[in-house]
């Protein structure tokens, strides 16, 4: 099985209101899958289903199945904490804790109970390197994370996600608060991350989806209208609605 996720007949409701409507999708391992679509189409709802982040919303209800490496993550005997460790998430606004750069990176590890200093040091360094920020912070690991620029904070958040050794990293509009250079750095990083991780990225910026992803799904009003190889979606989409959206004819 080469898919990280197999999503079948996914329906999501907030109370009585449907948010996702019969979504079927296969997410390939070690590739970047982008989710695009107009505001309110259900992108965030969708991506949050993949690590059960929506569980925290009382009115949230889900039907259908999401298999992660073959296991249904919504079945009863699933360890949600374990799922969230294996499926990491990076959010729109960089959200470092008001702690040092080191402590931010080591946060998940400490929660896991890892205390060995040299082990922590090693993972912190490796994670910061993988997140392409090591060179910028190696001399100030014990300064506050809040002293970093927005782009650096976002890469620190990526390092924090990487540190607990997830298999998947979900990004929900990771660059919308960043300038073009910081954005380009994150995009570069995402392209590199797929050597080791499966990446799913929600973005408002369809050019960004085009640049970084291998597969793109186009959502509208809760439905997955088209899902294909990114090159295909942006040169010759099969669906008229997709074409109208990416050419700016609506939305």
């Amino acid at each position: 099985m080469n898919n990280a996720f197999n999503i079948e007949k996914l329906n999501v409701f907030y109370g009585d209101k449907p948010a996702l409507d019969d979504v079927n999708m296969e997410i390939s391992q070690k590739a970047v899958t982008a989710v695009i679509g107009p505001s309110g189409c259900g992108k965030s709802t969708f991506i949050r289903c993949l690590n059960r982040m929506n569980d925290l919303i009382p009115v949230f209800r889900l039907e259908g199945s999401i298999k992660f490496n073959g296991t249904d993550i919504y079945s009863k005997d699933i360890d949600v904490i374990d799922i969230r460790r294996r499926v990491g998430m990076v959010f729109q606004k960089p959200n470092p804790f008001p702690k040092s750069i080191y402590e931010n990176t080591a946060y998940g590890l400490r929660i896991q109970g890892i205390k060995n200093k040299s082990r922590l040091d090693g993972i912190v360094e490796a994670s910061l390197k993988k997140a392409a920020i090591w060179d910028e912070v190696k001399d100030r690991l014990h300064q506050s994370a809040l002293s970093l620029s927005g782009g650096q904070q976002q890469r620190l958040c990526i390092a924090r996600a990487i540190a607990v050794e997830p298999e998947i990293i979900l990004f929900d509009e990771p660059c919308s608060a960043l300038d073009p250079i910081a954005t380009a750095k994150i995009e570069d990083l995402i392209t590199k991350l797929k050597d080791d991780y499966t990446v799913v990225i929600v973005t408002h910026n369809m050019q960004q989806a085009a640049r970084v992803s291998d597969y793109t799904g186009f959502f509208m009003m809760g439905k997955l209208h088209e899902f294909d190889i990114t090159k295909k979606i942006f040169t010759a989409p099969s669906n008229k609605m997709t074409e109208d959206y990416i050419t700016g004819r609506f939305g």
């Binding site: 085009a210 990114t230 942006f234």
Partner: peptide, 12 residues
């Protein structure tokens, strides 16, 4: 030609 078009479409 196809690769060029894909580059234009995906990499701006």
């Amino acid at each position: 030609e196809e690769r060029c078009l894909q580059m234009i479409a995906t990499q701006q």
